[in-house]
Amino acid sequence: MTKKDLGNNTLSVVDEVFLRIYCFPGFLDKHPALPIFIGGKRPDAMRYKVFSMNNLHSTSATWRQVTTEEGTRTVAISLESRAGLCAAMTVTWIKKSIASQGVGVLSDIEMGSHHWMAIVQAAYEKGSMPNTQGLSRVDKIFPLLVSQNLKPCECSRGTGFFPPEQVVNWAISKSGHSLYAFEKSGPGGHMSHMIGMRCEGRILQMFNPSEGLYQYSDVSSFKQHMRSYLVRDGSKFCGEWGLISVSSYL
């Protein structure tokens, strides 16, 4: 079978057709040398990871200069290991994805500075944005979006468990970008998290700040992965959840 040279990796003609048809148009044209499938192999369940992310920084952090062999840089030293930047990361991904005019965010580098996202997350967590005092975690998402020139459109909310398949159905029904905020409790304690989704024609994506950006070839694979992620650790959903569709003010 004919292979396309990708440096140390290869991409078969079948895989290239799969990527061009079922994923986002223009991806290979813009990034012809990007290794997509290691060894020319597609992942199971018809999904693949576009890029990885590390949600390690915290709003409760000190920023220090460290010197390495590569030079001096500023890093966040987390004081609360479980306090990440999921809200700021998700909103940033949505903002940049919309601004890409259909191309999408193709690498973690395009997400920008974690330092900036920590500032945005702190404003959200500490309620320092205007008119956010006393609001619930879901209610504070609306001013967070507006602060980034994003327009909250439709919203669905509730408490406790919401079936992962219904999360996907809701996102698909809105066509475009949306986010899902939820709370869980388990052996590791209580956690709040936020993920983003993009459903535009054949483009089906989920952005998880703790893992990265995933893309799916079909709705079934999207739902399967959503369920495996949301219910995999045995923890229970608690508190408030919210689904919000998002567009740009610009």
Results as ranks from 00 to 15, higher is better:
M1W: 02
T2D: 15
T2P: 15
L6M: 15
N9M: 09
S12V: 03
E16P: 00
C23E: 05
P25V: 12
K30I: 12
A33W: 00
A45P: 00
F51N: 08
M53K: 03
M53Q: 07
H57C: 13
A61D: 08
T62G: 14
E69L: 15
T72L: 08
R73C: 14
I77L: 12
L85E: 01
C86W: 04
A87S: 08
V91P: 03
W93Q: 01
W93C: 06
A99I: 02
S100T: 04
G102T: 01
G104R: 05
V105E: 07
V105P: 11
E110V: 01
G112K: 06
A118E: 05
I119F: 15
I119N: 14
V120F: 11
A123P: 05
E125M: 12
T132E: 01
S136E: 01
P143W: 02
L145F: 01
L145H: 06
V146C: 08
Q148F: 06
K151V: 07
R157D: 01
F162R: 08
P163N: 01
V168S: 06
K174P: 03
G176C: 04
S192H: 10
M197E: 02
C199V: 07
E200I: 13
F207S: 04
P209R: 08
G212V: 04
G212P: 01
Q215I: 15
S220Y: 00
K223Y: 06
S228I: 00
G234I: 04
C238D: 05
V246M: 08
S248G: 08
S248V: 02
Y249W: 05
Y249S: 13
